[in-house]
Design a binder for these strands. Structure first.
Lengths: 155, 155
DNA sequence: TAAGATTGAGAGCTCAATCTTG
DNA sequence: CAAGATTGAGCTCTCAATCTTA
């Protein structure tokens, strides 16, 4: 016996949930990205950066942005490079800690975020939300929220 | 009015479900891939190919494999290139349709798939299944199953 | 010695074009 | 002309190493 261990192998229903997660994510994200690309809209990762900054009041240190955007630290550096080159974000030295950098949303960036939302919202509605009842949506949000929170722990 | 149209904008609870899906997927898949990489195991996409073939009885045409593996058609060509170079899969001309190619699981491939499962199962258990009750797992499987099926339709 | 961020190198993915066969 | 599969080019991601400051 020993530790409060985890079952080595997931049971059938949890395995079905795992497979459904992989399939639904691939199908929905893929379809939305194709739609956005075809419409010449901002790529999803760019939008993700802009929203995270907007929700944080317009400025965030790089490593905090990395957490919210769900990308690796090094991946974020380059993603912000591109978004910055497009003028939607600006980098500033972090006051008080000379190691740090803060990403700041520019006016153009805030405008781009607002302008991009409708197309993105439509994609979510068509490729995801449409298939869920309110009860199902609530169940998914609750259950997967715990998964995300749990994974953040062991990090 | 007109078409049986879809709401332009998802409501709050469905939007929360969407965000939870993105976060849970990124967290769980990322953690599992890091574990597998650290253990020197097969990458997830390779495993995905081997399982799909095993479940189909060992052989599948390229475009059928592409559907199950949840990767783009062109992405699959190269993925199979790599797995084939490792000797886990072999390509054969498709009998009856000279345009086609079938991917065939080799003995080494079948063995690799069996050997890889425990590590992968443990990752699913630790980073995903552990956080879900049986009821929650069933709800997630049902709801996201519909999303995946729906997206497959409009494709 | 650790934390914040960037960089270099290599691998993988996506789109669009191409080639072959139906 | 459509379907099956591959290829070429460009872009993005990841890991590991590096540099600077705490």
């Amino acid at each position: 016996m020993g530790e409060p261990s985890v079952a080595e192998e997931p049971d059938e229903i949890r395995l079905a949930a795992w497979r459904a997660l992989l399939n639904a994510h691939a199908a929905a994200v893929g379809a939305i990205e194709r739609d956005l690309h075809a419409a010449g809209a901002l790529p999803l990762p760019w939008y993700d950066v802009l929203v995270a900054l907007a929700e944080a009041g317009g400025r965030l240190r790089m490593h905090e942005l990395a957490e919210r955007v769900v990308l690796s630290r090094s991946g974020l550096t380059r993603l912000v490079d591109r978004v910055e080159a497009a003028g939607l974000v600006r980098r500033e030295p972090s006051p008080g800690d000379r190691r740090g950098t803060v990403a700041v949303l520019t006016e153009a960036g805030a405008a781009a975020q607002v302008a991009a939302w409708p197309a993105y919202a439509r994609g979510i509605a068509v490729h995801f939300a449409r298939h869920l009842s309110a009860v199902e949506a609530e169940a998914v949000a609750g259950a997967l929220g715990k998964v995300a929170a749990g994974a953040a722990d062991d990090a």
